[in-house]
Each structure stands twice: as C-alpha cells, then as structure tokens.
Simulated assay, not measured.
Amino acid sequence: MMDFSGYRRSILLVFGVAAIAAMLTPLAKAQPAPLPEKPFAEHRIALQLSDDDPKKQSLVISVAYNLLKAYDPDKVAIEVVAFGPGIDLLRTENANRKLVESLVAQGVRFDVCLNTLDTIERNTGKRPDIIGAATPVQVGVGQILSLTENGYTLVRP
C-alpha cells in the first residue's frame, strides 16, 4: 500500500501558502464602486467636481437638476464624483447639503474619494464629516475612469 501522507502534506502546504498570499495581497487596491443600477438608462452622465469653489458646486447641482427635468429620471443615470477640494460639497456643514440630499432622493449618486479623506485626515489629524448619502469610492479619478469605460459621458461643469 502506498503512503500518501507526504503528498497530502505537500498539497496542504501549497494551499496554505496560496491562502496566506491571498490574505497578504493589499486590500487597498483601487476598486471602483459598483455602477448604479439603472438598467434602462439611455443617458449616463458623470459630473466631475474637483474644486471647492461654491460657484462650481452650485453649477454641478444645477446641471444635475436640469438633467432630471430634461429627461425621464428613470432614463438618465447621473453620478457626481467629488475628489480633492471638491469633497467640500459633501461635508455635513455645506450650505448645499439639502439640495444634495434631494438629488440623491431622485436617484443621483454622489461619490466621495476616500484617498482625499485619508489625505486630509493625515494632514490635519481629523477626518472630515461627510453626509451619509455620499458613496465612498477609493479613488475618485479611478471611479471616473470606470464610469467612462462603461458608457458614461464625463462633464466637468
């Protein structure tokens, strides 16, 4: 009779090494957020917000509202991607908070860049308070790239 105990140990060792390698793979790889579920959307717009200028924030909000008025809300997917100074729109103390939350209630998605939040926290010692309606994405620009690769038109008001 053959002794397979050495063979079994080798197999277990290989699986064990593979499992450890999988666990050690960096978890912070930039993974875009899943795309919103609007399967019947005929128009897909990604709005980039990367400045803290209140006029640009108002413009992004205005563009989103105008798109909702111009198209059936079920036929248009709108995603605002905020990164860098643009995350200010999504801070809890922002004057436009109610407008943002109203847009979210109408199906507009607002993404906030986690890399930006991490950088602010590292530099100031405090993580900014962001509205709960914001969808965290690891890399704002990576999210824009993913959206454009999936049929979204990028607009930077």
Rank of each mutant, 00 (worst) to 15 (best):
F4H: 06
V81G: 06
M23C: 14
R8E: 15
P39V: 00
K56G: 05
T148V: 15
Y7P: 00
K29C: 02
Y71C: 00
N94A: 07
E93D: 15
L89N: 07
R127W: 06
Y71Q: 01
N123L: 12
K38L: 15
E42Y: 01
P157M: 03
L89P: 10
S5Y: 01
R122N: 13
K55Y: 04
P54H: 10
K38V: 09
R8S: 09
D111L: 04
V104D: 11
P128E: 02
T25N: 12
G151D: 08
S10G: 15
Y152T: 09
V104P: 10
R122H: 14
N96A: 12
K29I: 12
I11K: 13
L67Y: 08
I20L: 15
S10K: 12
I144N: 03
R97A: 14
V100P: 12
Y152P: 13
R8N: 12
F83L: 07
K29A: 11
S5F: 02
A46I: 03
M1N: 07
G6T: 13
S50Q: 11
F40G: 12
G142Y: 03
V104K: 09
R97Y: 08
Y152I: 10
K75T: 01
L47Q: 03
L47K: 05
S146D: 15
L99T: 03
Y7I: 11
R44Y: 06
K126L: 03
M23L: 15
I87K: 02
L117I: 05
P32T: 07
A22N: 11
F83K: 01
L68C: 08
T25K: 14
L145T: 15
A82D: 06
L27Y: 07
P39D: 01
S5T: 13
T153D: 02
P136R: 06
T153P: 00
A18W: 13
L90C: 10
Q57K: 14
A46Y: 04
M23I: 14
Q48A: 06
S102R: 10
L12W: 08
T124I: 08
V139Q: 02
L89G: 09
I131P: 12
K69W: 05
K75E: 02
P54F: 08
K75A: 09
D3T: 01
L13G: 09
K38H: 14
A134Y: 09
R156E: 06
A46H: 05
V63M: 13
R122S: 15
A82G: 08
L24I: 08
D129Y: 04
K38P: 08
Q31L: 13
T124Y: 11
L49F: 07
S146K: 09
S102K: 11
V63S: 12
V104L: 04
I45G: 05
L154N: 05
Q143R: 12
A33M: 08
P39W: 00
G86R: 09
V108Y: 03
K55E: 11
A33C: 03
